[in-house]
Nucleic acid binder design. Structure first.
Lengths: 327, 327
DNA sequence: CTGAAAGCGCTTACAG
DNA sequence: CTGAAAGCGCTTACAG
């Protein structure tokens, strides 16, 4: 391994001069060329650890994710990764396997590794999060959830919920089951539902019942039959595509035809939803783009630029074949 | 930030003694207790960069992946991550977006960051890979592909192909289309096909035609109709679950009933395959477990323990409803 | 513009 | 068992 001292010796200058050259300081024309040549010949590249030891900061952005095997997470990570590369930062991902303690741990551990900033894909923000973020003193950007005290980037869950509510009303559905998730998750559990509820209130004579399940396909699969029997809805609006997939499977199992006997919608826009039979009507979020935005924002924060506390990523309804027209 | 010097001062000993204590060297009973207490009080934790600067090695295992949004990758990463945590190592993932140059780059860059070892989820091993691995002089474990010169961990693609071939023959299928991928991918493109072909040769009077598509669902979707028309198979054996999903959708679109009009199988065992209608019969691989194995192996390699050049992860046929019984 | 020197926080022979 | 000292590879005032 060649070091800065080697380069200095070979170029006949001082180490400090090489360092200055490397860091864009003022160096004479001649000196510059000599150093350039030597570096080229040796293929020198600085030791990151030595740099970090002095600099107290790296060009690494830590990304904390609750899980690795989710469509939303994967796409968001890709967006972050690609944008960060462009900006000459590296992404370090820390997986917490949906364990809140590990989320806090990760925050500390990333801080210790002197990451320049942290992107947090949280499902929930607790008092401990707030304290930790405060304590580590590193820029943190929340993605997917929002909190007034933390820079946040969210999908427009509320408006998305509203849009799908209006959509269903317009299709003439008067008896709709909304299958959501726990209100602990503000974005998915509360905002989507509220948006939906708002749209329904505007509509006339639409009866809605709200149900709750988990994020797991299997749980939706088990839940849906009882909803069908008890409420006999013409449509089920599901809070995620995975829930919708479970609902679809449940409907098949009961011998129902989609959308003739039952309409189903989701949220997310996972690629797989297009390949189902019938194709699922859903609200698409732009995870990859949001990841890119997040990368931009965190780097701005690292550079101490001013940004808004809240950024919102867009959505779009994708109309496919899983919703029947009743009106 | 408290440093080792602070601890030394507070405990009234030399820095070297503290360092020795930290690294499990021999320290007197009394000294030990003093240092212990001070560290406890200050919440000291060593600076990783300073450690790495000397140590020339970290406790980080780099994992190079071609993409982040694939079922197999996600599950494998989870397996690696969890096992590595147990072993007190950290996982650093480097995404290459299926760019071969970036794969090589990543190898160098990880080496520069002094990772202890590298797990490489490759789709292909080239001469450049070999050179790079040679050059960086860090233990590398190949996962998903095998190469005689590199420690490898593979899924049993050959036997899996054989198993599904026998399975289909036993169900009485005599006219089977095999929809594979490019032979550039030895594991998926060659081994699965060879295994399958071997099984068919054992069987009697089974006609097979081999087709090729990409890993994309959409490409399979486009490819399948022509296969159906040209060959009129009773079954399509697809080299991945995603291809099978595309085939399923194509079949729907042509108004075919599955499995009555056409049987379909995949490889992978993605969770989603259970939720399709009908549920997809497929060969399941154990990605997460394989990830755990990979983590074990690479750590053994890092510790200079002897391991076999090749490890093989198991598979299992999951029989669901997408295959008809003709015999 | 350039160089000598100190220092970042650790580890590791070496001597006692 | 313990400590003083040198060194890992870089950066950063400071002086010239």
């Amino acid at each position: 391994m060649t070091t800065i001292a080697d380069i200095a010796r070979l170029a006949g200058v001082a180490k400090s001069t090489v360092s200055r050259y490397l860091n864009g300081g003022s160096v004479g024309e001649q000196t510059m060329r000599k150093i350039e040549r030597v570096i080229g010949e040796t293929g020198y590249s600085p030791n990151t650890f030595a740099q970090s030891l002095k600099a107290k900061k790296t060009n690494i952005i830590g990304t904390v994710v609750p899980r690795l095997d989710s469509y939303a997470t994967s796409k968001t990570l890709i967006g972050i990764d690609e944008k960060l590369r462009e900006l000459n930062y590296q992404m370090f991902v820390s997986n917490t396997s949906q364990d809140l303690d590990r989320e806090i741990e990760s925050l500390y551990s990333l801080a210790k590794q002197k990451v320049a900033g942290i992107i947090l894909l949280a499902t929930k923000v607790t008092e401990r999060h707030l304290e930790t973020i405060q304590e580590i003193g590193i820029p943190v950007l929340l993605v997917g959830q929002q909190h007034e005290q933390i820079y946040s980037l969210i999908h427009d869950d509320f408006e998305a919920g509203k849009a799908i509510g209006r959509f269903m009303a317009k299709k003439g559905h008067k008896q709709i089951a909304y299958l959501g998730v726990s209100e602990e998750d503000i974005a998915v559990g509360v905002k989507r539902k509220q948006g939906f509820a708002g749209a329904i209130k505007e509509a006339e004579e639409v009866k809605v019942r709200y149900y709750e399940t988990s994020f797991k396909i299997g749980d939706a699969l088990e839940k849906v039959p009882s909803i069908l029997e008890e409420f006999r809805p013409t449509a089920i609006v599901c809070a995620t595509d995975n829930i919708a997939i479970g609902a679809l499977k449940a409907a098949y199992s009961k011998g129902l035809k989609i959308p003739e006997d039952l309409s189903i919608t989701g949220f997310g826009g996972y690629e797989i939803t297009e390949m189902l039979n019938p194709g699922l009507t859903t609200v698409q979020f732009f995870y990859k783009e949001a990841g890119g935005m997040a990368a931009d924002k965190i780097v701005q924060l690292v550079n101490e630029e001013e940004i808004q506390m809240l950024s919102v990523s867009d959505f779009k309804i994708i109309e496919r074949e899983s919703v029947d027209i009743l009106s």
